[in-house]
Amino acid sequence: MEAHPAQPDAPTPAQRADVDLTSKPSGPIAAAMIAAGIGALVLGILTVWAEASEGFKESLAYNDRVGPLSGKTIWATVAFFVSFGALSLGLRRRHVDLAKATVITLVLLGLGYLGTFAPFFRMFAPE
């Protein structure tokens, strides 16, 4: 009996389910979702970090009138579009497990929401 070589790229059952459901690869969809999560996470991290460090907060004030919110939102937006572009390029022809991509997105979004929640980030303010 001839042994078949291992196929590292063989789809998992979940991936096969996705392939069956649609003719289009699900990679670009996973890229869009995860990029939104990354943008939210970066905003959350910058918000907490700025609260904890007065120097960092000042460094984010690219515009005097807007203050540190200008830097936080610019970098979060950059993170969203850059990660969307990079993930789209990497995943554009791949069928990925959308259940896994959803879990990753939810975790990233959850951390982003937590970091931007005022009672949470205020806990990091110096005494």
């Binding site: 649609t22 289009k24 670009p28 969809i29 869009a32 979702m33 990029a35 939104a36 943008g39 939210a40 905003l43 918000t47 919110l69 936080k72 939102t73 979060a76 937006t77 969203f80 969307f84 979004l109 982003g112 929401y113 931007t116 929640f117 005022a118 009672p119 205020r122």
Partner: peptide, 29 residues
């Protein structure tokens, strides 16, 4: 200010990222 505005000014920026992901998904599929 300390709860309402500080939460609002940050969380609002998550909405367009999610809305863009939705638009991309609809246009793609």
């Amino acid at each position: 200010h300390e709860f309402g505005m500080e939460w609002k000014e940050h969380i609002a920026w998550i909405a367009p990222m999610l809305a863009t992901a939705v638009a991309v998904m609809v246009i793609y599929y």
